[in-house]
Amino acid sequence: MTAARAAADILVHAPGVHPRVGIVLGSGLGSVADRVEDAVSIPYGELPGFPVPAVEGHAGRLVVGRLGGQAVACMQGRVHAYEGGDFAPLRNAIRALKLAGCNTLLLTCAAGSLRPEVGPGRLMAVADHINLLGTNPLVGPNDDTFGPRFPSLSDAWDPGLRVRLHAAAARTGIALAEGVYAAWLGPCFETPAEVRMLKTLGADAVGMSMVPECIVARHCGLRVAGCAVITNLGVGIGEGTVDHAHTLSTAAAAASDLERLLIDFLDGLTVEDGNQP
């Protein structure tokens, strides 16, 4: 099994560290991994079956060490559905984190806001999602060793972990919004009409990631929390153009708030902190 080999390699590269929390760092947010203590950096290319990102802002390294007092494995970068190919590398990476010892997955991304009051630079905890990718990472034969053929997503984004995110935000003085995240295939940004549609559907933010990883993680029993860094207002809501360079620069500027939030969130985190209303 490729995921098992990758998990074994992670533990060999970082002896003595048994990660309990996996973190996926999105566009422009890779600097958060610089805060990991006693860090061991493993290029994805050295881990069997891991994805190799091809988009600027995604370094393609796994950083293993300690953050906020927790043993963590930080994925610096991800692949996206718009890059083509199938979801096998994404499934393999998330399952490898599970097999290496992780019980919790914290997902981050850069996103566009559909709410004028939640503007660039703000952070948003994910309460639920809408999958508009047109596909699902579990399509194809099911691997019963990881999870059921028809997994429930009623608690996809763990309510107890979300409560903990808000508590961490209050302690650190960070204004943390909360909302529904819509996964957009991309790579084009949305049109004004599509932004209006997304708002009608009940979305509060839109991006091109996180949802496939959440689905794979829930399928194999990982608890999931998500935090989106708002880099822009949706077209037609705010002024100015939206492009990837702007996304990266705004995400990088907000990374310090994300660092403080995650460190406080991780401090004292236990298994019992999940799935509490």
Rank of each mutant, 00 (worst) to 15 (best):
M1N: 08
M1H: 06
R5E: 15
A8R: 05
I10G: 04
I10P: 01
I10T: 00
H18K: 14
P19L: 03
L25I: 03
G28M: 07
G30V: 02
D34Q: 15
R35G: 15
D38H: 11
A39N: 10
S41T: 12
P43H: 10
Y44R: 12
L47F: 04
P53N: 11
V55R: 06
V55M: 04
E56G: 12
L62Q: 05
V64C: 14
R66Y: 15
R66P: 14
G68C: 02
G69E: 10
A71N: 15
G77V: 10
G77L: 03
V79F: 05
E83C: 08
A88E: 15
R91E: 09
R91P: 03
N92Y: 08
N92D: 08
A93D: 07
L97C: 12
K98Y: 11
A100D: 00
G101C: 11
G112R: 07
G121C: 12
R122N: 11
L123K: 03
V126P: 00
A127M: 10
H129R: 09
N136A: 03
N136Y: 05
V139W: 05
P141M: 01
T145E: 15
T145F: 00
T145D: 15
G147C: 11
L153D: 11
P159L: 09
V163E: 13
L165R: 01
L165Y: 03
G186E: 02
P187E: 09
C188I: 07
F189I: 03
F189D: 02
P192K: 00
C214T: 10
C220F: 02
C220M: 10
L222K: 01
L222V: 00
L222Q: 01
V224A: 02
C227Y: 03
C227V: 15
I230Q: 06
G240S: 05
V242Y: 10
A245L: 08
L248S: 11
T250A: 14
A254Y: 05
D257I: 02
R260M: 14
N275F: 00
Q276S: 14
P277H: 13
